[in-house]
């Protein structure tokens, strides 16, 4: 009984994760500039992968595999923002953004040359 419920929940979260990934793919293709594409690529994508992992966990249900799935989830959650920040900074610095779509730019008001964290 519980096994069947877990199976169905697992199937549901697998499909939901795939749907979110699909929406992220549409966003990456459709959004007008690199920064908005980043939004599509990082947010629904992270939740999509997490949901897929939850689906795997619900269908496999062995403690050993759960540990490894948890590890993948932690890696995803901790590395995605770092990569996103580096890509976002590169996109901003190389001017890959549509100024007509910006309501405000407080980073430009800061002026060049003040401190920044890290290399690159």
């Amino acid at each position: 009984m519980i096994a069947t419920i877990a199976d169905w929940l697992g199937a549901g979260s697998l499909v939901a994760g795939a749907l979110l990934s699909l929406a992220a793919g549409v966003g990456v293709l459709r959004f007008p500039d690199a920064l908005s594409r980043m939004h599509a690529a990082t947010k629904p994508q992270v939740l999509g992968v997490l949901l897929l992992l939850l689906g795997i966990a619900l269908r496999l249900r062995t403690p050993t595999d759960l540990g490894m799935i948890l590890l993948v989830a932690v890696f995803q959650l901790s590395t995605a923002p770092v990569a996103a920040q580096m890509i976002g900074r590169a996109a901003y610095r190389s001017g890959r953004l549509d100024r007509g779509l910006l309501d405000a730019d407080e980073l430009a008001e800061r002026g060049p040359g003040s401190g920044s964290a890290g290399p690159a």
Binding site: S78, G88, L107
Partner: peptide, 29 residues
């Protein structure tokens, strides 16, 4: 920075460590 970058329609562009300031890109304003 990690949590904000993961969560609402926001994205960290630059971190000013000395001033403790985050620069975010907000989508859909």
């Amino acid at each position: 920075a990690e949590a904000v970058s993961l969560v609402p329609g926001t994205l960290i562009l630059e971190v000013d460590r000395d001033a403790g300031t985050l620069y975010l890109h907000v989508l859909d304003t």
